[in-house]
């Protein structure tokens, strides 16, 4: 049984068909990348999965359960977690406190402190623990948010352009982080533009175009697909 499944998912905004009949099934333990030109509907699909938007029609299933009508926080509590494209951190609070807020609802006081220290190490943020999160470098902010998402011990991690704005080294390190998480049993669904990153981590890739699933397969199959190249070229020319 797939851990995440969408069935005939549609979303209109006014007359605009942003997501059209999307059927997606992500098996547990997979790293799945979602690619597509700008405006392909990737972010909207994410928001539908997270429950920030309600679909016009269709269903979202998590672990076999229909969660289409659940609120976002209820989905999170069932084992989903997300890292947004623009770092969604608490800028005016310290790095340590950011992690504390992410961890506090499932840990008591003693293990909380220990867990924060472990996470700070995993994220290479130990020296910055007392800093305000808003003062971190861009890459560090991205990592902090990944850390907050991971802190929930999710079964399914959604990443929206996790490497946006990162240097090649930081991107690679992030890729290794994602693979490490998968070894720990986390399923990952990532929206990503950086093809090097996709090559590094993806088991399978789905291409979205104009709100529809355009192609699906391994990274090798997708790269070899001329139709996929065409839609990206089309975007360059437009």
């Amino acid at each position: 049984m797939p851990i995440l499944e969408t069935r005939g998912l549609n979303k209109h905004f006014g007359g605009l068909h942003v997501t059209a009949d999307v059927n997606l099934a992500i098996p547990a333990g997979e790293i799945h990348c979602l690619i597509g030109p700008n405006g392909a509907g990737k972010s909207t699909l994410f928001r539908l999965i997270l429950g920030e938007h309600q679909p016009s029609s269709g269903q979202v299933l998590y672990d076999g359960e229909d969660i289409t009508r659940l609120k976002s926080f209820e989905r999170i509590r069932r084992g989903m977690s997300v890292k947004f494209q623009v770092p969604g951190i608490f800028k005016a609070l310290s790095v340590r406190q950011n992690l504390e807020i992410a961890l506090q609802h499932h840990l008591d006081h003693g293990s909380l402190r220990q867990e924060i220290d472990e996470l700070l190490g995993f994220l290479s943020l130990r020296d910055a623990a007392g800093q305000l999160a808003g003062n971190l470098s861009h890459g560090q902010k991205q990592w902090l948010e990944i850390g907050m998402a991971v802190a929930l011990k999710p079964k399914l991690l959604l990443l929206d352009e996790p490497t946006a704005g990162m240097s090649p080294d930081e991107t690679h390190a992030t890729g290794e982080m994602v693979k490490e998480l998968r070894r720990g049993g986390v399923t990952v669904l990532a929206v990503e533009h950086d093809m090097d990153f996709v090559r590094q981590v993806a088991d399978r890739v789905t291409v979205l175009h104009m709100g529809r699933v355009f192609a699906q397969g391994t990274i090798g199959e997708i790269v070899a697909d001329e139709r996929v190249a065409a839609i990206y070229l089309g975007e360059v020319h437009a």
Partner: peptide, 21 residues
């Protein structure tokens, strides 16, 4: 209080940490 200031700073993130803001 932690959650309260988290909501002030970024309500979307707070909700996505599983809090019913």
């Amino acid at each position: 209080g932690n959650v309260l200031v988290a909501i002030r700073e970024n309500p979307e993130r707070a909700e996505m940490l599983g809090y019913d803001i």
